[in-house]
Amino acid sequence: MSSHVEYVLRFGDSALVLAQQLSGLVAHSPIMEEDVAIANVSLDLFGQARLWLGYAGELEGAGRDEDRLAFHRDASEFRNVLLVERPNGDFASTTVRGYFYDLWSYLALGNLTQSLDRRIAAIAEKSRKETAYHLRRSEDWLVRLGDGTEESHARAQRAASELWPYTGELFMGDDVDVEMARQGIGFDPERVREPWLERARLALATATLDVPGDSWMQHGGKQGVHTEALGYLLAEMQVLPRSIPEAVW
């Protein structure tokens, strides 16, 4: 698979996996207004995923459309970052995972709007607006939980500590990133590390939460080496199309 296809799949798969996770929460929120809100974020992310996957399929030129890519690849063929496949957990975990992702995504998409690949730039432009809103929402909730009650503070702190080791991967480049940056299609992920850390530290401080200490950073999702969680997620998501592979739905 070309670096170009790989690269596009990474963004698409991350959006897809997170969208899938959030979609499972609808009808189970702490208050019904949040069901509507979470559904909106999930719908935005599915929309982004479809744009990325559709484009990846075109670039690949092997006749795979968005559904072929979403429903007929195994876990090892997925290129999402590990962060988004971490389970929903409680509302604090969902919020913190969302915040870490939204902040990264917002910064990454900002870089991609400068891509020489005009399709990528266009997808990034559209997605960035949506993501700016997601970020506003998740940051607000991060602060409410951190600076809310003793219980919400403890839950938010635990979520931040548990998810922190999955943030490092967001900024780790590999050969694909180098190649894409060289061609002006992509960017060096290292470039968003400092802006991400700066804003995350500020938000955590506002939320009266401690910034988790340095730890080993898990990685591998971008190269297809995932956590156990992804297999279950895909098993559920893909069960129907795989049961009747020739069917049109």
């Binding site: 207004e33 509507v36 809100a37």
Partner: peptide, 20 residues
């Protein structure tokens, strides 16, 4: 109408609920 803990959240809920 809707329910929200604070004004900012009320605006966000209003956006999601009444301007979909």
């Amino acid at each position: 109408s809707l329910h929200a803990a604070d004004a900012r959240m009320a605006l966000e809920h209003a956006r999601d609920l009444y301007t979909r």
